[in-house]
Design a protein around this nucleic acid. Structure first.
Lengths: 226, 226
DNA sequence: CTTTATTTTGGCCATTCGATCAACTTTATT
DNA sequence: AATAAAGTTGATCGAATGGCCAAAATAAAG
């Protein structure tokens, strides 16, 4: 699976169940370790050990360390984009769509998974944060995230037609960054906020309230005056 | 310089000017490369080459790769904290301090340097983003940034005494993350916003407006009703 | 059951890594 | 100018890296 071998022939046999499981275990382990230690801080041998397979299998299933990394990032990107765009369509179907609904459609599909006990999705979210903050992954990030981002910015502009597109873009990037901080800086929030942290759903609501208010200030500093 | 050698003796001579220059070139090069390629993606040999010195000198002046990294992060941290706290005191001296003034006192000292052509400070800001998002650097981040962060959160609470400290902490982390995105995701803003990007001062003002409005929504969802 | 494509294994390769060393040069101090 | 501390150099160490290979094991397809 996830093969990118030389073109010559299609495969002539269905992959065995064991092979599929192995590939899955490798991608899962890579997702975990890449998100914890970064691309350069993770060796293919680390991944092999965490996946419970021999080192050579990582190269075999992943083609190369680089290709494996991109596979990990892209794996959940499509499903996530589809889910976000569906939620966006639902939000825009309302007679008077709110900024909160639009941002929630972007934030909730990822954060409700990442912050509610699904460690594998949490790892993926942290990986997204890493990719989004590192210029070396710009092409990968553009490929995976920009189309959906453009849709959401268009949605914001459809709600506030007078908004400056530059302001919408800036506010959107701020919002995405704040969202990802919930995954990368949970330890930091806990250190600064003291012992009892809000529950995950509460933190998501906090984020949406914060982002919507901030974005609204950027694109419509004055309420509908007249 | 930045020596942490075995205790035995104090140094018996003043360091030569050449030695000081070498140490500075190494720390500057390390700041640049660490911020571009991360800790694991940067080798001591890379740093040596970028600094124009031989490989052994990096270990000699930096003691170890790890110690060099911490030296780079800590170097500007103290001056930055002092400058922020001075700006905060000035903001709080006003008869009616605003959230914008407090957040500006935190944001401007770093961002006015990082976004206005000082490539070395931009590298440092990106390094801060990296440290803030990676749990492996949590102790270093706590040591360098938490004391000042606590002061700013206290200032916010002094302006809005009824605010929930948890909300203040969450809003502050969101704000820091959004701020750092200006340094790490400039390429992303440009890609999403189109050709002509706002100038650096404009982007800083955008950020402060966004963050103040977001934070205000979190800690005082209703304006002073009565 | 046979055949053979596919998967898995263990070992190996060239390279790079952080670190250390003895020898050599520079320079602060007297 | 003399002395020795401090700084610098090139070489080298053991360990770890990503990738590759021939051989062996597995299992899909006939």
């Amino acid at each position: 699976m996830f093969r990118a071998k030389q073109d010559p022939g299609q495969r002539q046999r269905a992959p065995s169940q064991r092979s599929i499981d192995t590939g899955l275990r490798i991608v899962d382990a890579a997702e975990r370790l890449f998100s914890e230690r970064g691309y350069d801080g993770t060796s293919t041998r680390d991944i092999a050990q965490s996946a419970g397979v021999t080192a050579a299998l990582v190269t075999f299933h992943g083609s190369s360390k680089l290709a494996l990394f991109e596979t990990v990032v892209e794996r959940r990107a499509h499903a996530m984009s589809a889910q976000r765009e569906a939620a966006l369509a639902l939000a825009l179907a309302s007679p008077s769509p709110t900024l909160e609904a639009v941002l929630g459609a972007f934030i909730r599909p990822l954060m409700s998974r990442a912050l509610c006990g699904d460690t594998q999705w949490l790892a993926y979210a942290r990986l997204v944060a890493m990719v989004s903050a590192d210029a070396r992954w710009a092409p990968l990030a553009a490929r995976c995230f920009d189309p959906t981002a453009a849709q959401f910015m268009a949605a914001v502009r459809s709600i506030h037609p007078q908004a400056n597109p530059q302001d919408v873009a800036a506010g959107f990037v701020f919002t995405v960054s704040a969202m990802l901080s919930l995954c990368t800086s949970e330890w930091r929030i806990m250190a600064l906020a003291g012992p009892d942290t809000p529950t995950a759903p509460d933190r998501i609501d906090q984020l949406i309230a914060y982002a919507a208010a901030g974005l609204r200030m950027l694109i419509a500093p004055d309420q509908p005056l007249g």
